[in-house]
């Protein structure tokens, strides 16, 4: 129970990072925290029904649920890809505006369009 409450708090910290922090890099950190939280949640909860790694050998039963682990492999790779792409976009945003502050970026880029 307590572990899941801690994970929920971690989730909210990540959400805080995305929504409140002005620095775009910190926003991306927030996204990464969200992603890690859900990975931990899946793997932690899936491991509660067993005590051994899901690599079959003699006398290792019960194993943990392997399905969440396989799903989270996919989720981790996707999370890393999205982070890499976001960072490269931020690199270009910094190149063209010279700032990491989201409000400044917005006002500099959209000043002639609004």
């Amino acid at each position: 129970m307590i572990d899941r409450i801690l994970l929920l708090i971690l989730f909210l910290i990540g959400f805080y990072g995305i929504i409140v922090k002005k620095n775009v890099i910190k926003k991306i950190f927030g996204l990464t925290i969200l992603n890690s939280t859900i990975v931990m949640l899946f793997v932690l909860e899936g491991s509660k029904i067993g005590s051994h790694v899901p690599i079959l050998e003699e006398n290792i039963t019960p194993i943990v649920d392997p399905v969440p682990q396989a799903l989270m492999l996919t989720a981790i790779v996707i999370g890393v890809c999205v982070t890499a792409l976001a960072l490269s976009i931020v690199y270009r945003l910094f190149n063209s505006t010279g700032t990491f502050d989201i409000d400044e970026i917005r006002s500099k880029l959209y000043k002639d369009e609004e």
């Binding site: 079959l56 194993i63 392997p66």
Partner: peptide, 26 residues
């Protein structure tokens, strides 16, 4: 936590895919 998938894979996973690492077999 549901045990259906775990039990099924423990019994049949290696036989059906040949991989001892069940995560790989998934």
């Amino acid at each position: 936590w549901p045990v259906f998938a775990r039990d099924y894979l423990e019994a049949n996973g290696e036989e059906q895919t040949g991989a001892a690492n069940i995560v790989s077999s998934i």
